[in-house]
Nucleic acid binder design. Structure first.
Lengths: 131, 131
DNA sequence: ACAAGACATCGACAGTTGTCGAAACACGCA
DNA sequence: TGCGTGTTTCGACAACTGTCGATGTCTTGT
């Protein structure tokens, strides 16, 4: 139903994707950057979704059928609801093959998320590494 | 006020901290791991909080006075509310010096978050790096 | 065509969250 | 001591979120 709401953290640019935001420690986020990045953090901000995402991300082949990962303590409609949220956030993609639906992670998004949190080699806040 | 609610992502272990969770792609999170990690993602899942966090993290000296970062489009009590949330999530610490209160990031927490998202050298889902 | 299984959508509901203004608290200074 | 400024807490309220059971859709097998 939506086609302008996907992949908030990355923007397609023809042959790949470009990250939306600099590392968190580089400079203060603009309102727009924050809106974009927060959507992704929010998607991972629920324990059930995090388990589902982790289950997909760690599954052999990089993809998993819903039936493989739906044992997270909530009902089946709730699992479906959360997978939809993760898809809307651009973290997962889904594909139906026969009876089953397979979800897989968007690898570049995971990389972009890591880049957001990895301090860029002695950033302003990373000067004192010894805690 | 609270002393059992801080640093969800890391556990103090005498001389430093140890990460709570493996990378997301290593194996499915347990319910407990997910609960812990989700608390942190949730804290960054709000645009205002993300801007505040980024403002502190990128500020010279690794710390910032509330007065330096409170221009994010919401009222001052709301800023205080969000800073409290970030503190409860273990992402920020605060210290009062005279009239002003300074916030700084917990560097090890940032590192732990990055580790969560960085695939551990060709993990199950990281085999295909070229999208 | 029909039944069965896998998954998604719908509608409802309790609990949580973000926001504000008002008030309280902490500190420095006259 | 009292005032002004910076920050937090309080109380209230609308909006959002996670959850469920019931139902719908899609595919396979009989």
């Amino acid at each position: 139903m939506s086609n302008a709401r996907t992949l908030p953290l990355l923007e397609p640019d023809g042959q790949g994707v470009v990250p939306c935001c600099p590392p968190l420690t580089e400079r203060p986020f603009t309102a727009e950057e924050a809106e974009t990045a927060a959507r992704m953090f929010k998607a991972l901000g629920d324990p059930v979704r995090l388990r589902l995402f982790s289950a997909v991300a760690s599954h052999a082949g990089g993809e998993a059928c819903v039936c493989d990962i739906s044992d997270v303590g909530v009902s089946q409609p709730t699992v479906s609801h959360h997978l939809k949220k993760l898809k809307e956030a651009g973290l997962l993609t889904s594909e139906r093959r026969g009876t089953w639906v397979y979800y897989r992670v968007e690898p570049s998004v995971l990389a972009a998320m890591g880049r957001l949190l990895t301090s860029p080699a002695a950033g302003p806040a990373g000067a004192t590494t010894g805690n």
